[in-house]
């Protein structure tokens, strides 16, 4: 079906449609410079981004996300909470202890007996091990420590697990990924599986890979997490978003991250 539609569109464009079709950002799967951003058929949102946005991400000095990495780095060795501990007191050098950790979340946590995002896991260490207040969703410190921890896995391929105790969460995530919702009556899969590479108004649809989170979004003028982006995609179709860290939003993050297995951690990425 999709092929027929594509063919129809190509024919329409070739036939000289009244409205000019926007030029897409360059991408060539065979060009080795894109190798870090693809895995088989999977493509990072980087390959759908405008050249200026990519350039911003590529340079640590122009990438605004590094302000959060720097802030998180300071937090890592700062004592907080009644236990009088810093992350560093238990975890030592983050470059070693946190390396690869960002590639396996959302993950089933035996202590919580639940699926946790990386941000939730960090808050668990704060409340249970540091006796500190949990950081508030989307606050500067919340995003900073998560970006710092995630950045320690930069360039490593995602490898979230979907079996064992994760299986029921994964099944639920898949169900929600394929469920129609909102006034537009569409599912995640319609935009990110069926029509990536096509345009919805000015938006070039990507495969919806969350491998760059937490990421800086030009539209937000700030950095945010995958939980926030997924809620944004609900708004996009005029659907009622699920609450942050709800079971539904977390299993959706799991399913979306599993789709990105094999793609590399880009945090902090920069997107439109």
């Amino acid at each position: 079906m999709r092929k027929t539609i594509l063919a129809a569109v190509i024919a329409a464009v070739a036939g000289g449609a009244a409205v000019p079709v926007l030029a897409d950002p360059p991408f060539d799967a065979k060009d080795p410079k894109y190798a870090p951003y693809i895995a088989g058929e999977k493509r990072s949102g980087y390959t759908f981004a405008e050249p200026e946005t990519r350039a911003m991400q590529d340079d640590d000095f122009s990438n605004p996300g590094f302000l959060w990495v720097e802030e998180g780095k300071k937090m890592w060795s700062k004592v907080d909470g009644k236990a009088g501990k810093a992350c560093k007191d238990c975890h030592g050098d983050a470059e070693k202890s946190m390396k690869g950790v960002g590639t396996v979340y959302p993950r089933f946590d035996p202590h919580a007996n639940a699926l946790l995002t990386l941000e939730q896991k960090i808050n668990q260490c704060r409340t249970e091990r540091m006796e500190a207040q949990p950081l508030k969703f989307d606050s500067k410190p919340y995003n900073a420590i998560a970006t710092f921890v995630k950045h320690q896995s930069f360039g490593m391929p995602f490898a979230v697990q979907t079996d064992g105790p994760v299986a029921p969460y994964f099944d639920m995530g898949r169900r929600l990924y394929y469920e129609r919702r909102g006034m537009s009556d569409v599912a995640c899969k319609h935009c990110h599986e069926d029509y990536w590479g096509m345009h919805m108004r000015t938006e070039l649809l990507s495969q919806g890979m969350p491998n760059g989170f937490p990421q800086y979004r030009l539209k937000w003028q700030t950095l945010g997490t995958a939980q926030k982006r997924i809620r944004g995609c609900f708004e996009e179709v005029r659907a009622e978003p699920y609450p942050v860290d709800s079971l539904e939003n977390t299993v959706l993050e799991l399913y979306a991250t599993w789709r990105a297995n094999g793609l590399r951690v880009e945090s902090p990425a920069v997107r439109k």
């Binding site: 919702r181 909102g182 006034m183 009556d185 005029r238």
Partner: peptide
């Protein structure tokens, strides 16, 4: 989208 259907799933409040 279905433009004239009122029993849609999880429409924004």
């Amino acid at each position: 989208p279905s433009f004239y259907k009122s029993d849609l799933n999880r429409v924004k409040k």
